[in-house]
């Protein structure tokens, strides 16, 4: 695929990228704090990852290798189009291999393969404010963050246990970053939350419609909120992947017919493929 002409490298103009990088630097300096930025119109609708794309566009260079996943998969529409977008406007090489990528843009998952130093994980975020369903006044949520006044979030968890016997948040499970800011980890499954804690890679979060950027620098403590007697538990389907047999990875439930047939597959297609390839290599040897 050839690089499109008539666009600046990575679509955004250099001034805009500089503005976004300044926001990112501030976000890295204050882990978990939401930094406003001048979100631009992108050639795709809000809700399709405009925040993540602007962050990626601002940090990507010609030597980077980009991976894009949507719900863990490299081959879904959103992932394919964003990957092709950057191949076209930045001419960067892309990959589906987690270990080979220097930048991974993601919607709703963290790869199963542990990330390492030097990699950057860019999250697409629909709603950056973790308190937004609890406190409708935006000014008041800002004040609560400023005062680190997060009793309200615990009230939400309390209500869950009172009503359901357990904390019934299965995705976008709230976390405390560096013991200071309450943060929405974007709608990743709660299963992925522990991966955020002291991750060697840099994690950047972009919310295009809400015009916010926030970050978790490498090796930063990220703790899922919980109670002493109701500790946080990452939940996954109690099954093995039908393709690779993994009992550790996060699984998607796939309905196979109209008669209630179903199977569980790894949500992370790269991880699953790697494991299947390894099995085949072992068999071939």
């Amino acid at each position: 695929m050839s690089t499109a002409t008539g666009y600046n490298f990575a679509y955004l103009d250099e001034d805009t990228k500089r503005m976004i990088r300044r926001a990112i630097l501030k976000a890295v300096a204050i882990p978990g704090h939401q930094v406003p930025f001048g979100s631009r119109e992108m050639p795709l609708p809000y809700g399709w990852g405009t925040g993540g794309i602007q962050v990626t566009a601002s940090i990507i260079g010609p030597q980077d290798r980009l991976k894009v996943i949507d719900q863990g998969a490299d081959d879904t529409t959103n992932a394919v189009s964003i990957r092709r977008f950057f191949a076209r406007v930045a001419g960067v090489p892309t990959t589906e291999r987690t270990s080979e990528a220097s930048i991974i843009q993601t919607r709703h998952r963290i790869p199963e393969t542990p990330l390492r130093e030097g990699q950057i994980l860019v999250y697409q975020v629909p709603m950056p404010e973790p308190l937004f369903r609890l406190e409708p006044r935006v000014a008041e949520t800002k004040r609560l963050h400023a005062m680190a006044d997060y009793g309200l979030m615990h009230v939400r968890l309390y209500e869950d246990i009172a009503r359901h016997g357990h904390i019934a948040i299965s995705y976008n499970y709230p976390v405390m970053v560096n013991g200071r800011y309450l943060m929405a980890p974007s709608p990743i499954p709660a299963f992925d939350n522990p991966k955020m804690d002291r991750m060697p890679a840099l994690q950047l979060f972009g919310a295009g419609r809400e015009k916010r950027i926030y970050a978790v620098p490498p090796y930063t403590a990220v703790r899922s909120l919980d109670f002493e007697d109701h500790p946080f538990e990452p939940v996954r389907a109690k099954a093995a992947c039908a393709l690779c047999g993994s009992r550790e990875s996060y699984l998607d439930e796939v309905v196979t017919d109209d008669r209630g047939g179903r199977m569980f597959l790894c949500s992370d297609t790269d991880y699953c493929g790697e494991r299947q390839a390894a099995v085949q290599r072992d068999a071939a040897e």
């Binding site: 006044d149 009793g151 309200l152 615990h154 009230v155 309390y158 209500e159 246990i161 009172a162 009503r163 919980d226 109670f227 002493e228 007697d229 109701h230």
Partner: peptide
């Protein structure tokens, strides 16, 4: 918010973390 949550909020705000 439930009556229990209302009473509990102030406890949680000052650090109570045992449901």
């Amino acid at each position: 918010v439930s009556a229990g949550g209302n009473v509990g909020e102030r406890l949680m705000a000052v650090g109570a973390r045992h449901y």
